[in-house]
């Protein structure tokens, strides 16, 4: 009594095994639901092994589409990251600048993509360009907001210290405000990373171009759903999920590289 409870090895093992066990249980439940469906409803929910077979059968189409969508997502994401950073730098200059741009940034964010898409198709044509722009539009806002917040949240004592050192405005931005904003920047990056593949798939769905093997996962979704290929649709969803996973893992790796040495979010050894 009175002593702190130590983690037993059993609970450590349980921690590792439980997610796996949950997954197995969910597959059982999935099969259970499939079995309970009447014969004329069976097509609504494919069994796990039917999804697996769709993976194999549609493999080349799926991976090709994933590559197209992933490429569009990556370009749109990269553009959003770069331009949002520059824009955030401008916004961080003064409250006046922020006040004059924020309303329009909000309007941009509120405008439904589904309405912008046809305009984009008319302007730049369907295909990669439209997909990139749609991804960009979705990723831009969270990036700008977070990075700007980071740039203006610099510790006022540190700002005073730089002032005492007679630091120039450029020095203060480069050596103080930008590094201090990194944790915020990576928060925005993580949000944008989950949005980028979704944005690219939505973009492909409404403004993609199927000609010459340019179709992405959105295009496949249209095809498979029109043909009621439920197994293939589930497989497409899984590939989209994988794409999102890759993006998020990439960003987590980047933020680890940039922050783990000094930022508390990566501190270790404390209880």
């Amino acid at each position: 009594m009175g002593t702190t409870r130590k983690k037993t090895p059993l609970s450590v093992i349980a921690r590792k095994l439980l997610p796996f066990a949950t997954g197995v249980a969910m597959i059982f439940v999935w099969y259970g639901i499939c079995m309970s469906l009447s014969a004329d409803q069976r097509f609504l929910l494919p069994t796990p092994h039917e999804v697996a077979r769709a993976f194999v059968d549609k493999g080349p189409a799926l991976w090709g589409a994933a590559l197209n969508t992933g490429g569009g997502a990556l370009i749109g994401f990269a553009l959003a990251v770069g331009l949002s950073f520059l824009f955030a730098l401008v916004l961080s200059l003064s409250p006046l600048v922020r006040a004059s741009f924020y309303p329009y940034l909000m309007i941009l964010q509120m405008t439904p993509i589904i309405v912008i898409a046809p305009i984009l198709i008319l302007w730049v044509g369907p295909g990669l360009k439209s997909v990139v722009i749609i991804t960009f539009l979705i990723c831009f806002f969270p990036m700008v907001v977070n990075t700007t917040q980071g740039l203006i949240s610099t510790d006022s004592n540190l700002v005073a210290f730089f002032k005492m050192c007679k630091a120039t405005k450029v020095q203060t931005i480069l050596f103080l405000r930008v590094p201090a904003a990194l944790p915020y920047f990576f928060t925005g990056l993580r949000i944008a990373a989950t949005l980028a593949p979704i944005g690219a798939i939505v973009g492909d769905y409404i403004a993609g171009n199927s000609a010459g093997g340019q179709g992405g996962l959105g295009f496949l979704t249209i095809i498979y759903s029109s043909q009621f290929q439920m197994g293939a649709l589930f497989a497409t969803a899984a590939v989209g999920c994988l794409l999102g996973f890759i993006f998020v893992m990439g960003v987590i790796a980047l933020s680890w590289l940039a922050l783990h040495k000094w930022h508390d979010s990566f501190s270790h050894g404390d209880s």
Binding site: D155, N157, L158, A160, F161, F162, M164, C165, K166, A167, Q171, F175, L176, P179, A180, L182, K261, W262, H263
Partner: peptide, 28 residues
């Protein structure tokens, strides 16, 4: 001719101890 020691240590968390000490000299 002046140096200010603040209430808080006001160190740059992303720089090592040595890099922190040299900040004023780097800025100059």
């Amino acid at each position: 001719k002046l140096a200010f020691v603040f209430q808080e240590p006001t160190l740059l968390p992303w720089r090592t101890v040595a890099q922190n000490v040299e900040v004023p000299m780097r800025l100059h």
